[in-house]
Amino acid sequence: MTTTSTDVSQLPPKQKGRWWRRWGEETFSAYLFLLPSLVIFITFTFFPAIYSMVVSLFRWNMPSKPFFVGFENYIYLFTDAIEAPLFWKSFLNTFYFALGVPINLVISLLIALLLNRRLAGVGIFRTTFFLPTITSMAAVSVVWLWLFHPADYGLFNSWLIAMGIPIQRWLRDPVLAMPCLIGMGVWHGMGYNIIIFLAGLQAVPTTYYEAAKIDGASPFALFRHITWPLLGPTLFYVLTVGMINSLKAFTEIDVMTQGGPLGSTTTLAYLLYQNAFQFFQMGKASAIAVLLFIMLLLLTWIQFRFVDRKVHYE
């Protein structure tokens, strides 16, 4: 509200009156309308974020009094013989899990290209691909637990038996668990990306294609030189949002593997949850949260700095 101190004499004569009138009723109203969401943002997002930075400097088992320890929690996470390996393993797992994002991107782009054609019954296909996305992750996870059942009567294992391949332990196998989660994540998230891509594809003017076709361009050249560059902003959006969501993934891990087996699916977000709500070590959990926040910040910055430049905006 610093505008109140502005010297009245410097303002154009027609803006005489009380400060809110000078400021402009519309601007004022605009801020008023923004206020509710701003209040919610500050109370439930901004304040907790700052608060967790403060808590990360304390040793705090929720009901007891917090105890200031400086950077002890961070030092443990980086150097301690027990904590550090767990932290770095979760750090790597986080990026392993994020591999699902580019995989998802490629598959959903391919499907979007197919769905963008004028085919009979294309609406049915579009709905079918979108269905998993609107189903709750918790429900989906429970169903996939059944599909991934490690015994011979699990659905996937019964297919393997039919094909004469040895049965697999899927989510209960330290090597296979993460690929299983990624696979399910791709299936679940695909629909959303397809819709975004379809919107992007339909925004490409058909005149470009017509002109290129007259010049004798091949279908691949059409994609390479028209579709791909014009889809740039969409791709960039899908990549950024997908990355952030992947780093925050929690439900499927909690329902399907609880971070196991042998910690092979413990991502930073899950390590944070374990420390906060299973061990009630809020300081350590907050330290992980702060590190995750810094990682996200860096990643988003890199994406804007390097990827954004290559994106063509119309």
């Binding site: 088992n61 009094k65 105890f67 002890e72 443990y76 027990i82 061990f279």
Partner: peptide, 27 residues
């Protein structure tokens, strides 16, 4: 899963919980 012998696994469990008592629950 054959990732550790019973002695190794229980030694590690003891060390990590002792460590938690020492570092996280002491005031």
């Amino acid at each position: 899963l054959g990732a550790a012998t019973p002695q190794e696994a229980l030694d590690a469990a003891k060390t990590s919980v002792d460590h938690a008592i020492e570092t996280q629950f002491s005031t």
